[in-house]
Each structure stands twice: as C-alpha cells, then as structure tokens.
Write a protein that binds this DNA or RNA. Structure first.
Lengths: 202, 202
DNA sequence: GTCTATATAGTGATAGAC
DNA sequence: GTCTATCACTATATAGAC
C-alpha cells in the first residue's frame, strides 16, 4: 500500500473513532509512521482529507438503506431485508452513524453538502419514489396501517442508528464484555424489525 | 446575576450548541463580557466547568424519563404520558440528547461517571424496578405483547432522541422554516407514541 | 473579584533541503 | 516523495498587579 493510501486509511479510522475536531493531522502521521507534513503534501488540508473519508461513508450509508430485495417476497419480508441490510452495514462500520450525525449537527457546511448529494441525486429520488409507491399500495390493499413513507423511514433510521450509538454506552455502563456487546447488537437488530413490523400490521 | 453565574449560564449555552471540544474558555469569557482568566478563577479548569453543566443536564434527562403519571389511567395512557414527558423535556433543551450522546461516545471518562450516577443510584433503580413490574403485569394480563422492559425503554429512547437529533438536519437539508421545524417535531412526537403503542398492542 | 501578561503546548499549514 | 524547520495561530492555565 502506498503512503498516500495509508494516510487515507488511518485518517478514516481516527475520524471514525474520535470525529473531525478531536483528530489532528499530527496524530494521523504518527500512526502511519510518517511526518505530519506528508499528510498535507497529499491532501493539502485536514478538511479535504476529512471530506474524502466522509463523503465515501455517506454514500455507503445511503446505498445500504436503499438496497433492493427479492421481488417474490411479500411486503413484510422485503421490508425486513431492507432493515437488516441497513443494520448490517452499520455493524461493519460501528461508529459511522455517530460520525455522520455528529458532523451534520455541528457543521452547517456538511448539511449543505449532503443536501446537494441527496436532493439533487436522481438515483436517490427514484428509489424513494419507488418505495413510496410500494407503501401506498400496501396501505390501499389494507396490508399495513396508514403511515407516511418518510415517517416509516425515520422510524427505521431512529431505531437502527440507536443500536450502534447505544452499544458502546450500554456496554461500558453495565460493564459488559465484547461478546455480550455483540449479543446486545444481534438482539436489538431482531427487535427493531419486530417493532417496526408490529407497528405496521393492521 | 453574579459573574460566576453568568459564566455558568453562558457555558451551558455554548456547550449545548457546540459541544465540549469546540467551545473555548476564551469564547465563553468574550460572550459574558469578562476576561478569560476569570473563567478559570471561578471554575479552575474547562473540564470542571463542563462537568457542572453536564451532570446537571444528565440528571434532568433521567428524571424526566422516570416521571410518574396519574394512577387511575390505564397502562397505555400512563405510557403515553411518560413518553410525552420525556419528549417535552428534550423539546425545551433541543441539543441536550445530542450533547449527552456525543460526550458519552467520545469520552470513556464520562461513561464511567454516568455509570456511577445511574447504577449506584437507588432512586433510579427503584423507578426501573417499579416500571419493570408494571410491564410484566400487563404482559401477564395479556394487555400487551411480551417485551423486555429494557427493550421498551430503548425503543422509546431511540425514537424520542432521534426526533431532536434529526430535526436540525431535516430542516436544513429540506430548507424548512423554523415554524415547519416545530411542526415536524410535533408530528414526530405524536407518531412515536403511536408507533410504540401499536407495537405493543396484542 | 477582575484585570494584564505570560508560560506552555498544541494546532494546521508551508518553505525548502535532500 | 519524504524529511526538518518553522510560521502564525489558538488553546488552557497560572502568576501577579490592582
């Protein structure tokens, strides 16, 4: 791996662990084993380096949520698969939801970047409209209780994100082992699906 | 108001807005209209000052959640009142859930402080056990579907906290006015209650 | 109690040697 | 491409004058 790639990879790790503000380019360089000037040689500014990591992660976050599932499943099976795909993506990147939330709340610039990325992205729009149509169909058929599509998405997002935000807190506060933490996550994943489906069934 | 109180109040405001790392004692002093040395004269360290704000807010956060309601309501009415009390507390302190989450995730020291506060606090324990008993009773009576008490609390917490974490993001990304933001919050509050109750009804 | 001044250390970023 | 050296800045915290 080139030094340039090592820097990006280490930056990703540290930004995910401690956020933008609390990670210094000096620290990144130290962990890579090179000089701090080299970080700026490749990426010029810390902000620049951060954005490369951040936007890639935002893309990952969104595409996982909009993942399509088998067409011959019924609605509840399809929804379950979508919820799980989203949770699995976060399980592989545990601090990702926190990083995104953190930066979006503390930094207006980031919110605007996301807006440009989401609202102007035809792919994202298409997937949303398709999902929206699907929901409206199922409501019309009387399969699920009436709900706004955005509300359903927000419910899933709330519950799923909170699994990974709460996991380290829960683990530390109750003095759990890493294995117990994994069990907590697995349990919560199942329960989120169950809660969402129960709230929809009519 | 004394200068000492002004400093504490300004610190509270800025810490809530921008978190610990991005708020400087210089900035606090400037906003109070005094010298930066004075902040340290009264509170010695920034960490100290932060903890005074933080722990007071954590107490507020927990006590709101454990608020008791009218005894002659049925279970669903009592639960609804509890969920609303918790949401209302956050509505009056919009950035509070974010601050708590943020500091707990980024800082292990803070997690340990909370542990000492929650786990060793008999009042908190009592309220939890009482709620737990109540849930188990209703399950036994067949009023609600079986669920672990901690899971129910986590579901409420997830959905409620996310209202206020998502509100500024939602508002900015979709270019909403402040009035529309209030409507979003009011709408989500209702929906959270509905989602939780629907998921419990058997 | 409030100020000025300052010690000390850390930051992001750049210039220039090799 | 990688380094050393350094600049300009900001931060927390303290010492000491008033």
């Amino acid at each position: 791996m080139t030094t340039e790639e090592q820097i990006l990879q280490t930056a990703e790790k540290l930004f995910l662990e401690k956020g933008f503000a609390m990670t210094s380019t000096t620290e990144i360089a130290k962990e890579v084993g090179c000089n701090q000037a080299l970080v700026h040689y490749y990426y010029r500014t810390k902000e620049n380096l951060f954005l490369q990591v951040f936007m890639q992660k935002v893309r990952l976050f969104i595409t996982a949520f909009t993942e399509k599932s088998g067409a011959n499943d019924d609605f509840f099976e399809r929804l379950e698969k979508r919820i799980c795909a989203h949770a699995n993506m976060m399980e592989q990147n545990p601090n990702l939801p926190f990083l995104i939330m953190n930066e979006l709340i503390l930094n207006k610039k980031r919110r605007c970047m996301i807006r440009d990325y989401i609202v102007d992205n035809p792919m994202v729009r298409d997937i949303y409209y398709e999902f929206d149509k699907e929901i409206k169909d199922e409501i019309a058929k009387g399969v699920i209780k009436p709900i706004d599509t955005l509300d359903l998405l927000l419910n899933v997002l709330s519950l799923n994100v909170f699994i990974f935000v709460s996991a380290p807190i829960y683990t530390d506060i109750l003095g759990r082992t890493d294995k117990e933490k994994q069990a907590y996550i697995a349990h919560r994943k199942k329960l989120v699906v169950q809660t969402i489906l129960n709230s929809l069934k009519s």
